[in-house]
């Protein structure tokens, strides 16, 4: 970020030169990460996994599996 339109646009305030270029990558990475996180937060997977976590009473300390849970049966069926 030493020359060009980007420098004319924000260089006066953000600064210019190679170091400020790196700085800009941080800022852009941060914004991408933030947008991605907010999208994921609104997604189906967040809701489903949250519900699953809060709903399940949790797995009891692994006792010998007398009756496998339904989802385990479905895995076994695949084998």
């Amino acid at each position: 970020m030493t020359t060009g339109r980007g420098v004319e646009l924000i260089g006066g305030w953000f600064g210019s030169g190679p170091d400020r270029g790196i700085a800009l990558v941080f800022t852009i990475t941060g914004i991408i990460g933030l947008v991605m996180t907010l999208l994921a937060l609104r997604s189906r997977f967040y809701r489903l996994l949250s519900q699953r976590y809060l709903a399940s009473a949790g797995h009891p300390p692994p006792a010998p599996q007398a009756s496998p849970a339904p989802h385990m049966a479905s895995i076994e069926a695949e084998h």
């Binding site: 953000f14 170091d19 941060g30 990460g33 949250s50 976590y53």
Partner: peptide
């Protein structure tokens, strides 16, 4: 809900990342 904690942590991280190099 740990998933909530995880997302709060992620939002914090990326928000920090977007501002911490805004000035040298």
């Amino acid at each position: 809900n740990p998933l909530r904690a995880m997302f709060s942590a992620n939002i914090t991280i990326w928000a920090i990342c977007s501002v911490m190099t805004i000035q040298p």
